[in-house]
Every structure is written in structure tokens, then in C-alpha cells.
Design a protein around this nucleic acid. Structure first.
Lengths: 346, 346
DNA sequence: ATCAACACCGAAAACGTTTTCGGTAGTTTC
DNA sequence: GAAACTACCGAAAACGTTTTCGGTGTTGAT
């Protein structure tokens, strides 16, 4: 019942623990014969090295921590998949925690991971997070930290992101290119950088096309569980408030699908009466009718890149003292579908 | 840079390591004064107990392993959420691995977790898994194992499941109750128990209502990434093969939504011409038009229950030698929406 | 016969905790 | 004034591994 140890193997073979350890790790100063004996016995006894002891000696756990605002979410779960697949390839295991978009939980969980002595941390911060002391502490602890998607610009660590501003600019520009004159925006919450950047991109596109920015055309969504409902609700509000709106750039696909559903119910024709561009390229976007024009946001890729960066830092930290943070920007692209009209030739 | 240890605190205060350790753990044989000193110093030095050393002594890691076929999946990600939320409450961390529906990967990952010496394991097995030796090994290792959703009946461990057969029976019965006479079934792959049980439930319902079972009305879907496409494809096939079909019970919502999309494109009226019942109650089911009648499968709840059972076993294993496996069955229910007609009064 | 080279092995320290057990000093009891 | 408590502290062993360093015995060359 009790797990087999090096000591037991040593006693059976009447050799020292040292030799057993070395034999299993293929040291050159152990004879072929002994190695054979040790390995065979280890095999038959089903010996598994005690990771706790190994960790204690080597001071690493080959485990990393991951904090994410929400797991039940297509984009984030894609990122997770990218991370753990990549981690597994490099022999790392991943402990996942969910902050639930709460700063307090995020802080607590970060402490949990630091206490567990994970080798490094990946995080996408919560919407509510405005203080970054808990994140700085990771760095102070000498552990590599890589942020992705929802980042804190001010923290001096590596980041894997998309250019939200540019993507939003392109989305809005596409609406303009397809003939929209009065364009609304369903934005996300006020705090997270993404939602700000997307808003800024939207605004810039209007400006560059000499369309006046009208703050009453901007609606806020929490983009949480209620995304679909928010989409429906805001769609109705737009119709009431501004009968002249002919295009909407929407912060996330889920909200966009809510809006589409509401518009269909209300007899609004898409894209003839109102054009819509979403954000994320959630797979449902190509399933709904009409299919949703949206910005493709590469989640799996982002997860992969984030882990790769963390891995690099893990390696360099073994030799050098410090790491130079790196900003990795992933490309996004507009996926043209049927909620926008074809581009006007002029 | 190097983490603070008990020894350092002891040296500074000129007391023994023992006393420091005891002070921090609030042993009764340490004076209030000493406790205060130790705790204050530990605080200011930002002392964190070395988990590796603690693990080595206590022989537990307060970490469990979770293997799941696919993360990017609404049902499974809900389960994950349930698990890690519950685990966090009890002070456990969760390492997640994804088998990708592959037996070989599943086997490898299980070994990985066992080597990591997690305290217990939660698993939903891959479709391809037909040999269960790797699962038995967990038990042989003396570690608690709890399966959920996709289980192996033959393995003697606790399981958290739904009654797929009953649920499928109810789904089919509902189609019959709403007037369907010729009912097709889009089933999942041949192997996993769920898919078999749902098929069996479908068949039984037909039998009990004196409707002849026709194997040509059963279509197989892989239910992987291509679910939506499979739904569309099989919908078309049904129309070609059997113009008289007036109801379909579909293995998962995603496939059902594909089918609905295809039917709408082909001008088939739902539920007038063909009624549909899905399975899972994916949130998109209530967003699509028409909203999908489906079986509610409580993912979050399942995750919670699975961890709770594992936790119980973890505790009992500390006292007793053996645990008696338990089968926990969660209730499902039919959610009536608009892809089925109202029930006929007779 | 001597020395160097080589092949192989093991003692011991170290990693940082936890816990048992015994010890000392001071206080109370009769 | 002896015995019995109480309150507090610490030495040491243990958990299982890794790695350094020094040993022994054999071989081959001189």
C-alpha cells in the first residue's frame, strides 16, 4: 500500500540509495549491469519517484498557475486549451482558478498559487481589478508572470494581446465601407482595457471618416452571463432612441446574437435596415441566421503563445537574473458574413 | 530573493525552529508573547511555508487531478467550473488535463497525475476508451477516483451521472405525446455508454407506445467539432431518405441546432412539419429561433457533486482502509420550448 | 613494482517542514 | 521541603530525493 521508495529498492538489491538514484537517472558512473537490475526491479515494483521530495530538492514543481475570469466562455476555454496542450508538451501541469471577474477572488487566488509554489503564472485579469499590487508581488517573488487578453498595461511583465483598438477600428470602418452612416456601439464595461480600446477604435474610425461622434449612440453591456439578454435589450433601446441608426459595432458576439434575435423579432431587416459587426468569431456566429460578420480573435493561439512565453522566461531565469518583458501582439481579421452588406464599389 | 524559511526566523529571534513552527500553527505550548513575535516577523518577512516540504511530511498535496475529453464545450466547462469552485472552498487545487477523446492520451495523462501524486482523481472518460486498466491502477494506488458523465460501469469507483436512458425515454415520449408518429434519432458515436443509453431510451419509448423501431431512422454523429455541420447534413439526409419523418430526438443540442438551421433553409417548418428535441440545454438553445425543446443536463451541479464525493472519500481514507463506491444520479428534466408542439389533450 | 587511469560505488549533507519526547524553571499543594 | 503540576522550549528524527566528494579495486603502462 505504501509507495515504493529508493531505499526499498536499495535494500532488496543490497546496494546504496545513491546508486539506485543514479541508475534510474542514467548516470555514467553506474555499471550497465547494476542499471539493468535497478531498472527492472523499479519496473516490477511500479516505483514512482516521490514528487514532493524531488520538488524539495530541485525547488521546482513543473506546475504553473492559471487565473481566468470565467471558464464557461468560448474564447477563454479556447485559451485554456491552448495553454494546457502546450504546457503538457513541455512537461508542465496547469492549475486553473477562476476569478469570476472579482478583484478580491483574484487576489486570494494569486496568493494561493504563490503559496503552492507554482513555477510561474498566467493570468487574464478581472474586470474589476484596478489595483495591481498582488500582481507585482508575483514579480517580487521572482516568478515569471505572463498576462493575456485582459492585461494591466502598468505591470512590467510579458503580455500576449490583440490590438483591440485596431480591430475595432477595422470593424467600424467596415460598417462605413458598406454604407452605414449612423453607427452605434454596444461596448463592454467601463474598466477593462479591451473594452476601452474597442471603444476608442470605434471613435477613431468615425473621426477619420468625418462622422460626428455621438455619445448617446454608445450603450454599455456587462458581457457576463446575461450577454444575450443585454443584446436583446439594447437592440430595442436603440430602435426607441435612434430610429436612424443603420449600423452597430458590438463588443462581443454573444451580445450581437442577442441583438440579432431581437431585431428579427421586431421585423428589422439585417443587414438592409441595420448592419451588425460582432467581436470574437465565436463558432455560433457562423451558425446563426444571418451569419454574423465579426472580428476573429485567436483564442487557442493566444493560449499557446502565452505559455510559450512563460516557458521561455522559466528557462532564462535559470541562468540569468532578470527577464526582459515582451509584448506579443496577435493578428486579428475581419470575417465578412451576412450581417453586413457587401462593400460598395465607388 | 531566496524565500524565507523557518530557520531564518528562528535565528533572528534566537529561538528554535520547532518553536517557530509551533507558534505559526498555534500550538498550546508556546507563550502568547513568542507567538506574537513570530507571527509579526513572519508577516513582515512575508514568510510562506514551503509547500514541497509540507507535502513531503504530510504526504498530501491538497491537489486533485481532472481529466476531461474536451474543454471547449459548454457542458464540460460547466462541470469544470463546478469542480474548481467546490475544490477551492475545501482548500484543494485542481490540475486539468484534456484527453481529446483519445484513449492513449487519457492513459498517459493519468500516469502523469499519479506521478505528480495528486490526492485524488476526477475523470470523464474518452469515447475511445474500452480498456480500463489505467483506471484500475488509480484504485490500486490507493487513491480515490470519481467518474462523472462518461463513465466505465465496470470500474469499481464512485460515479456521478444522469440517467441517460430515462432522459432519452422522456424526450422521445414527449415527441410522441405531441403527436409525432415517425420519429428519427440522431445518436452519438457507438462506444460511449451515454450514447448507447440514449439510443436505448429512444428505442424503449417507441416500443412502449407500439411504434415499430426502424434502424434506418437512426443516424450517427461524432458530436465533436463538426457537430453543427453533422446536424445540417443529417437533417438533409433524413428528408431525402424518409419524407414521412415528423420528429427527431437528437443526441446533443449543437447537432440539433445544426439540423434546425438546415430545416429552416430548406423551408421545413418546425415544429409543424418536423418536431425536434435536443439534449443538454445548452444556453444557445433558448436563443435560437425557434427555441429548442431539450433535456436539461446539470453540468455545474455534476461538477460540484463529483468533487464533494471525492472529498468525502479523501477524508474517510484517512481513517478507514477502504471506501464503498457510491453512484450518484442527478435529475434531468425536459424543457419544453418551441421546436415541439404543445401536448395534445385527449 | 609502481603509478596513473579508470570504473564503480556509497556516505553524508542538504532541501524545509512537522511532531514526538524529554527537559527546565517556576508554582502550587499538603 | 518534597511532590506534583504547569508553562514553555528545543533536540532530533523523519519524510525521500539529489548531488558532491571521496573512496576502493582493477587494469594497463612503465
Amino acid at each position: 500500500m505504501k509507495p515504493v521508495t529508493l531505499k526499498q529498492i536499495a535494500e532488496i538489491l543490497d546496494i546504496s540509495v545513491t546508486t539506485v538514484s543514479k541508475a534510474l537517472k542514467d548516470y555514467p558512473d553506474v555499471s550497465k549491469k547494476t542499471k539493468g537490475l535497478v531498472r527492472d526491479l523499479a519496473q516490477t515494483l511500479n516505483y514512482k519517484p516521490n514528487e514532493f521530495a524531488v520538488n524539495l530538492r530541485t525547488k521546482e514543481s513543473k506546475t504553473i498557475g492559471l487565473i481566468i475570469p470565467e471558464i464557461v466562455h468560448h474564447f477563454f476555454s479556447s485559451v485554456i486549451k491552448g495553454i494546457i496542450n502546450q504546457a503538457e508538451k513541455k512537461g508542465y501541469l496547469v492549475i486553473i482558478l477562476q476569478s469570476n471577474e472579482s478583484y478580491d477572488l483574484e487576489k486570494k487566488q494569486l496568493k494561493l498559487l504563490l503559496n503552492k509554489r507554482v513555477d510561474g503564472i498566467l493570468i487574464s485579469i478581472a474586470n474589476g481589478t484596478a489595483d495591481f499590487n498582488h500582481l507585482e508581488e508575483v514579480l517580487r517573488d521572482g516568478k515569471p508572470l505572463v498576462m493575456f487578453d485582459k492585461i494591466a498595461k502598468v505591470v512590467n511583465c510579458s503580455k500576449v494581446i490583440i490590438d483591440d483598438r485596431k480591430a475595432a477600428y477595422n470593424a467600424t470602418q467596415h460598417l462605413i465601407d458598406t454604407g452605414c452612416k449612423r453607427i452605434a456601439h454596444f461596448r463592454g464595461p467601463l474598466l477593462p482595457q479591451n473594452s476601452i480600446d474597442r471603444f476608442l477604435g470605434y471613435k477613431k474610425a468615425l473621426l477619420d471618416n468625418n462622422i460626428e461622434y455621438d455619445s448617446s449612440l454608445v450603450y454599455i453591456c456587462e458581457c457576463g452571463d446575461k450577454s444575450f439578454e443585454e443584446g436583446k435589450l439594447n437592440a430595442k433601446k436603440v430602435l426607441e432612441d435612434h430610429s436612424d441608426v443603420d449600423g452597430i459595432f458590438i463588443n462581443t458576439d454573444m451580445v450581437a446574437i442577442g441583438a440579432i434575435t431581437a431585431f428579427k423579432d421586431l421585423g428589422v431587416k439585417i443587414p438592409e435596415d441595420i448592419s451588425i459587426v460582432g467581436f470574437s468569431n465565436w463558432f455560433m456566429s457562423s451558425a446563426i441566421t444571418p451569419t454574423l460578420t465579426t472580428i476573429n480573435q485567436p483564442g487557442y493561439e493566444m493560449g499557446k503563445k502565452a505559455f510559450k512565453q512563460l516557458y521561455k522566461e522559466l528557462k532564462t531565469l535559470k541562468k540569468e537574473k532578470h527577464i526582459i518583458p515582451k509584448i506579443i501582439e496577435l493578428e486579428t481579421n475581419l470575417v465578412e458574413r451576412n450581417t453586413t452588406k457587401p462593400i460598395l464599389k465607388n
